[in-house]
Nucleic acid binder design. Structure first.
Ligand code: MN
Ligand code: MN
Ligand code: ZN
Ligand code: ZN
Lengths: 134, 134
DNA sequence: ATAATAAGGGAAAATTATTATCCTTAAATA
DNA sequence: TATTTAAGGATAATAATTTTCCCTTATTAT
């Protein structure tokens, strides 16, 4: 992925900090503000939390990253993609995308509720494969 | 429902404040701390927010009420019941229980993710029937 | 009815998360 | 390369929520 053009196309100046933020989100996905702060700290020991916040906000406004709200946890962020469900490991906090066809659930929920539904937040929690072994 | 015995069986002293809290949760369901504060204020003009917080916490610990975390909103509480999905109206904030068979989704999600999944948070949002008309 | 204990009320304090400020530094454009 | 403007860093301020404290009152068990 071309991180430089991702920023340029969204009228954002290309800074080393921003490049690392989008690279981290692209390769690791599902990172919280604090995760990002820790991750960026090795490359930028002087990075400020304010920089993380400011950039997360601007990137959300530009619509190329999105927030994932998780019960009991701080929100995590990921590059924008189609609506999807998440599996969360309660032991190691790993989060996995799942291509459940959410639209099918929504259709069923509309019938049941008589609501006109357009968005979903679907999060399953349990134990990931790695933690199951240990 | 016998609110008095619900409290007694959980080793909680039966106070008028607690009776109203459980009655409100039973009849209205899905109330936030502030909802409860407002609702109790008519019966107890001197009610303290601390009383609401202390009781919600103790009731959650006793496992007979549970928190429902909703993206972008303050948590709401309901009497403990089987796992179920929710429909949320973004206009009037109405929340509806849905007896979607969540276990079926969980089974599918386990296959997809290889996680061992036990809990779910499923919230759809849109417009409720009432708000669709207006 | 009494005594022991838990709960309520009011306010302060603590917590936590996010944003604003101010100055310095760096990126973009010509 | 000079100029303009946005972004970064450090810290303070803000805001919102939740908890704690301390005293009074009410509930429970005897
Ligand atoms: Mn995701
Ligand atoms: Mn419910
Ligand atoms: Zn795990
Ligand atoms: Zn509505």
């Amino acid at each position: 992925m071309d991180y430089i053009n991702l920023l340029k196309n969204n009228d954002l100046k290309v800074t080393p900090q921003r490049l690392i933020i989008v690279k981290e989100l692209d390769t690791k996905g599902h990172m919280s503000i604090d995760d990002l702060y820790i991750a960026l700290h090795s490359a930028f020991p002087s990075i400020s939390l304010a920089t993380i916040y400011k950039n997360i906000n601007v990137m959300i406004n530009k619509l190329f990253i999105q927030e994932v709200k998780i019960p009991n946890e701080k929100s995590v962020y990921e590059l924008a993609k189609e609506e999807h469900a998440h599996a969360l490991c309660v032991k190691c906090n790993a989060i996995m995308d799942m291509n459940l066809d959410v639209s099918k659930f929504i259709r069923k929920a509309e019938t049941l509720s008589n609501y006109s539904l357009s968005k979903s937040s679907v999060i399953f929690s349990g134990i990931c494969p790695t933690c199951q072994m240990s």
